[in-house]
Design a protein around this nucleic acid. Structure first.
Lengths: 250, 250
DNA sequence: CGGCTTCTTGATCTCGATCAATCAGCGTGG
DNA sequence: CCACGCTGATTGATCGAGATCAAGAAGCCG
């Protein structure tokens, strides 16, 4: 009634969970159709963020978690001085803000890397709904659990892997996330700068650049600016693991 | 009634949430007395683990999370080869196993560092109970969120801090956890080896040893084997932050 | 006591940071 | 349409924190 086939707010129209192409990856993934409607009802749509615009800032009051609909974001934590640490990149269908639940504020800023749209999910409503919908609750537990698991992988990367292994792992992880979203795992565009990559991986920008060049010379990837082509995936996987591998082949 | 002042199962008796000294830190922290009983009813007590004994192993089927009652544990993730990464230490009242929820198995082994007792909380029962008890659900969300937050801090430590800062941060974090549990924040015993500390902080054992010696020479701490005394907490905090600090005082 | 493991201390080497200099893109305005 | 200036990316040269290699010392337990 209030919204027939609204042309005035086409974004809002498209932005329903029921018609969202990400629904098989996102929070409502395990819900029945009826339940999806309930979930959809608590979502708030947001105007798209422009590149560099913050979704929220470190210290802002925690109210909601956000599902990325399109684009990408980075999470930054500042601690004294101007010394940022980039702790995460978020791609479509991923959930942002879960680490803010246990205090009244977000522990880091989240900033758009390109034009980005998100769905805002007020946490108090989500919590209440999760009481009625066990599937939703389970999905929420699983999302957080998965993020914990990913964090552990990241710690391993930061404390044990060489620069080469870090870059290779990074590219593989990205590739994998694209593949799961239906994009090519071999050819994609980085939405983050070299500086962002370095910050995230605990490396200097120069090192990132150098290693990408080297990978390129070895015909493992082709890189042109932010455009990446993975030419030899098995080799790249080898580079990411490479346990001081018995390099000798005889 | 069923248990007057049972002498036959003193452990089980003491091991009730209602009388547990950790109840103000543990999962049931936000529950009313009646609700605590419900929670208590799903807990399974466990025989104490001896030093070196695993609570579970990487790959074991996920069934439960565990609350540490006494002692301490370490979490290890093995990835190809024999190259372990120590991703966490667990102290009394902390929750173990949350990162296993979203897959059918635990992503790492958890091993006792000393004689350790835990409460087993079957996750399916916990999930069901969290439907009825919003406070419990909230506490569970908060626990996971806090762990996410701690992980981010750890990533920062691993990718930006020097060896000195890492050691100082480690000691401060431990001190803080002891204080919150009612123990001295200045004097405590490390239940983990130097090798464990190094593995956790991304440093070689030798480096850990060297830096502890240096801290000792600077009268910041007194270390004797695994016994630690923090002599100058403000100084230690300074060492942990030390943003390429303007060392000059004039 | 002897045979472990764990811890400490010293000497050297290496990976990646840092410093420094271009180079490439790209939007802005003349 | 091109010159200008800015930011981001690449490449080279040097340096240093911490790893690794190598010995001892000190617990610890049978």
């Amino acid at each position: 009634m209030s919204e027939p086939i609204s042309r005035r707010r086409p974004l809002l129209h498209e932005a329903r969970c029921q018609t969202c192409s990400l629904s098989s990856l996102c929070l409502p993934l395990a819900l029945e159709l009826d339940d999806v409607s309930q979930f959809d009802a608590i979502i708030r749509r947001r105007a798209p963020l422009k590149k560099g615009e913050p979704l929220f800032r470190q210290g802002d009051t925690f109210t909601s978690v956000f599902a990325v609909r399109s684009g990408s974001l980075k999470q930054l934590t500042t601690e004294g001085g101007g010394n940022d640490q980039l702790t995460n990149f978020y791609l479509p269908s991923e959930l942002v803000g879960l680490d803010g639940i246990d205090e009244e504020h977000y522990p880091g800023s989240v900033v758009a890397l390109e034009t980005t749209t998100v769905c805002e999910i007020p946490f108090d409503r989500l919590d209440l709904l999760s009481e009625e919908l066990p599937e939703l609750r389970g999905q929420l537990y699983r999302s957080m659990s998965k993020e914990l698991r990913d964090d552990r992988r990241m710690m391993r990367l930061l404390s044990r892997k060489t620069a080469d292994q870090r870059l290779a792992s990074f590219l593989i992880t990205l590739s994998d996330r694209f593949r799961r979203r239906g994009y090519s795992p071999y050819s994609f565009r980085l939405s983050m700068s070299r500086a962002d990559i370095g910050n995230y991986l605990g490396l200097a920008v120069e090192t990132v650049s150098r290693i990408l060049s080297r990978f390129q010379n070895q015909n493992v990837v082709a890189v042109s600016g932010r455009e990446v082509n993975i030419l030899d995936m098995p080799r790249l996987i080898g580079l990411a693991e490479e346990e001081e591998a018995d390099v000798s082949s005889h």
